[in-house]
């Protein structure tokens, strides 16, 4: 990739050139994503442990998740990653000629993120109405009441934390879109767009794994 140094953009003092600065940013964000893997990993370990201990209970509980909303949300996130990838690619190939495409792509990404959150909110509301929120109001058959609460605790915490990450992502993507519109970037300097893109794709990957673990359990023997 050519290192075209835009006249107005110079690397920070501790760097020799923009390429080094970009490499450093790339490595930095991947190290950060590794920490996120371990962060969600603690929850996934808890899920694995309890699914092993209460296989039947988890299967029964998971049948009450909203497959249609979950699947649509998965499609929404995958599409948002598509839009994000287009935005990053367009920016790196030629920011000056593609600026409007980039802004459009990033805006679509953020909008899809908002749509995801809206559907998630609707889903939470439905689950609340069906008394699937763990606690004294939890309504389930006596046999699996305990494990079902464990399942739904993990469901709300996993998707809730994921939702927090999506929210932060929407904010980041929106900011970067606004900065692009203002002309803060050039073909030689698209690093923030790339970084935010990596974060967004990672949030998508987390959901890719959550989807089968939450929504696809016990569907074959419903």
């Amino acid at each position: 990739m050519p290192d075209i140094r835009a006249p107005a953009i110079r690397p920070a003092l501790q760097f020799a050139d923009l390429t080094q600065e970009r490499d450093v940013a790339t490595i930095g964000i991947w190290v950060f994503l590794a920490t996120e893997m371990l962060f969600f990993g603690g929850l996934l370990t808890s899920y694995a442990v309890y699914r092993h201990m209460f296989a039947d209970g988890f299967t029964e509980a998971a049948r009450h998740t909203k497959l249609i909303i979950g699947t649509i949300n998965t499609a929404i996130l995958l599409t948002s990653s598509f839009a994000m990838a287009v935005g990053v690619e367009a920016a790196e190939r030629g920011m000056e000629e593609n600026r409007r495409i980039v802004v459009f792509a990033l805006t679509v990404t953020a909008a899809l993120g908002v749509a995801f959150l809206a559907l998630k909110g609707l889903e939470y509301y439905q689950e609340y109405q069906e008394h699937l929120v763990p606690g004294s109001g939890f309504a389930f058959g006596p046999r699996y009441r305990g494990p079902a609460q464990l399942f739904f605790l993990l469901y709300f915490i996993l998707t809730g934390l994921h939702g927090v990450h999506v929210t932060i992502g929407v904010g980041l993507v929106g900011s970067v879109a606004a900065m692009t519109r203002r002309g803060a970037f050039s073909t030689g300097y698209t690093t923030p767009i790339m970084i935010v893109g990596l974060y967004w794709h990672f949030v998508d990957v987390v959901w890719i794994f959550l989807y089968p673990l939450i929504y696809l359990v016990g569907r074959s023997t419903q």
Binding site: D23, T26, I27, W30, V31, L33, A34, T35, E36, M37, L38, G41, L44, T45
Partner: peptide, 15 residues
């Protein structure tokens, strides 16, 4: 950069 593969892999491996 290849270093990113190592850290991506490390996250997975440690999990």
């Amino acid at each position: 950069p290849p270093l990113t593969w190592i850290y991506a892999g490390a996250g997975l491996f440690w999990l």
